[in-house]
Design a protein around this nucleic acid. Sequence first.
DNA 1: CCAAGGCCTGAATG
DNA 2: ACATTCAGGCCTT
Length: 280
Amino acid sequence: MIDYYKINLEYTINSGQVFLWKKEKGIWFGINGQDVLKINNQGKINSYSKNRTDFFRESDNLEGILKSISKDKMTKLAVRKYNGLRLIRQDPFQCFISFIVSSNSNIQKIRNTLENICKNFGRSVIFDGIEFFLFPKPQILADASIQEIKKCGSGYRSEFIKKASEMVQSNQVNFEYLKNCKYFEAKEIISRVPGIGNKVADCILLFSLEKLDAFPLDRWMIRILDKYYPTIFEISTKTITDKQYDLLHEKITNYFGSYSGYAQQFLFKMEREIYKKKWL
DNA sequence: CCAAGGCCTGAATG
DNA sequence: ACATTCAGGCCTT
């Protein structure tokens, strides 16, 4: 029997969703926007701000969702094997910038860059006797020079970071609005931001904007679909054009349903483990 | 529309 | 050592 409501922290933190987490004295601490979260050994969250946050989406109907995505041998195996893996509900602005930084990069570098962004632009706080740097607010990054941002190691993405922050600051990107509209509208809006293409948009939508039907298609997911579902999704070309991406997304949601994002997370985790990819 | 090439950067590879 | 490749894409031609 599967315990659908269990939380496995190691699986969840090491699944490519978050980058600013670290273990101190056996306890996980992570930056989430203007807050620091601490997860004790029982999986209980304490936060620097004392605000409550449903970081692990505990209000989701996990049993219903996980059963609904268990359409075949692969998903059933992944859900069983990685029992306790959760989708995370992240701070939207941090998620937004994090995945702009992630493009054409790798975990270590993404993490390094984001840590620098916090150190150089974020507020320092002490929590449990440990110093943390919070994620900077939109205005700080919008007002920063591209030069300053570049010092964090973000390279050519630095101007995207500035422009993206300006768009949040000016309300062209309004996270509260995006949370409340449907997938396609939200995706259309955030795709106007430079540095946000199909994959990055889907990550932001899935991990911070309540779009559980988003299914980020990176080179790994393409490989997975091609390897395990050759007849269902029929990946033909190496490079995925916008049109092919949309078509594929439609096939995926038709197959896995409206909680496809959960299916993505489990399949991704399972395949990455095969290749012993570690994140944090 | 689609395909091809360039892009910051640094860890990993040869 | 040192050069080259590659990494959870995106944008421009």
